[in-house]
């Protein structure tokens, strides 16, 4: 079994070994990390966390727009670690997850992947 180390920076740097093939939400909760979640299929961002270092495979998520992805958000219910990673978890990590759409519009390349257009220039 391939494992990676997950460091949670806003839980005093606690570390956990996780199975690389399984979603982070499941492997971290099994080890006692109290995490929010909702739909459990990558559609609703309730479980979003912020990836600070390392890489994940979250191809199954359909909730994040490209700006949220650029800001480091990962959907733990479907994301799998592909290296050792460091995360901020919970709503304390959600500072850039929510925006007022009337005051802070998305640029065309910042929309969700299925409707985004490539960044110009």
């Amino acid at each position: 079994m391939t494992t990676h180390t997950v460091t949670i920076s806003n839980r005093d740097g606690a570390t956990f070994e996780v199975d690389a093939r399984r979603p982070l939400l499941d492997t971290l909760r099994e080890q006692g990390v109290d995490l929010p979640f909702g739909c459990k299929y990558g559609g609703c961002i309730t479980c979003a966390a912020k990836l600070k270092t390392g890489t994940v495979d979250q191809r199954r998520q359909v909730a994040l727009n490209n700006r949220q992805i650029a800001n480091g958000y990962v959907i733990l219910c479907v994301a799998r670690a592909t290296s050792d990673i460091t995360l901020d978890i919970g709503v304390e990590s959600h500072d850039k997850l929510y925006r007022n759409p009337f005051l802070d519009p998305l640029k065309p390349h910042e929309l969700k992947a299925d409707i985004a257009t490539p960044k110009e220039g």
Partner: peptide, 18 residues
């Protein structure tokens, strides 16, 4: 669609007929 409204409201998606 749930995948559209559950994560929040991207106003731009109205114009994309979402």
């Amino acid at each position: 669609a749930p995948n559209t409204f559950m994560p929040g409201f991207d106003l731009e998606e109205v114009g994309h007929l979402k």
